[in-house]
Nucleic acid binder design. Structure first.
Lengths: 116, 116
DNA sequence: CTGAATCCTTGGAGATACTG
DNA sequence: CAGTATCTCCAAGGATTCAG
């Protein structure tokens, strides 16, 4: 956690959006809320994200202490991602986002595409 | 609310982020949570945003039905922004963001810069 | 399978100046 | 006061390829 960066924020909301506001970050956290996931499981859940973007977002989330990366030195490679304790504190936010989105779908008369 | 746009989402979280995830949108909604505000009040609350950016974000929020723009044809001009009913439904999200941000500041040992 | 490296494009975003 | 217009530029993001 970079102190200078923190001092630059004018408002708590800004700090939160900086951590979770990345293009696919909320979706990644949402996916990990249901447990540890492997790379390709996240990729499948966020098909819009190219490998490059997914890597980048995952790395940033890791640097912000939101997720853990667990690499297994096996063949074929296996990497598991999970929420850290800090990441768990984001759950209420993503929960609120999800609830709001569901309401949005209902208003539009479109079935909610929750994976599953 | 654009049906085609809605159908393009893979997940409710995505829809919510599309509405609130803009660079200054959460901050704007946060500002309007405490009541109707004039343009320059919002600008003061979000000093990072240039007039151009602020206009754009406000217009997008208006198009998404999140805020109301009330223009008074007086001299000097006066425009007031407020949350719509839909905008009110975003309050739990922004609240969650704010709470998380405050926690973040505490962890960093930096005083929370809530305006006031 | 899980990425990293490379190249390339687009539009997001700042600075500045101007108008109803 | 509350924005728009114009110009500019950099970095976010995509496509593709390659590697451990």
């Amino acid at each position: 956690m970079n102190i200078e960066k923190v001092k630059g924020y004018h408002c708590p909301v800004e700090a939160a959006m900086d951590v979770i506001g990345g293009k696919y970050k909320a979706l990644i956290v949402y996916e990990l809320m249901s447990g540890t996931k492997r790379y390709h499981e996240i990729a499948r859940a966020v098909p819009q994200a190219t490998p490059r973007m997914l890597s980048k977002q995952l790395k940033e989330l890791e640097e912000d202490g939101v997720i853990n990366r667990m690499m297994y030195p096996v063949v074929p490679p296996k990497t598991e991602y999970s929420l850290t304790e800090t990441g768990q504190t984001l759950v209420p936010i993503v929960d609120a986002l999800c609830k709001w989105g569901e309401h949005y779908f209902e208003l539009a008369g479109v079935p909610v595409p929750c994976e599953g």
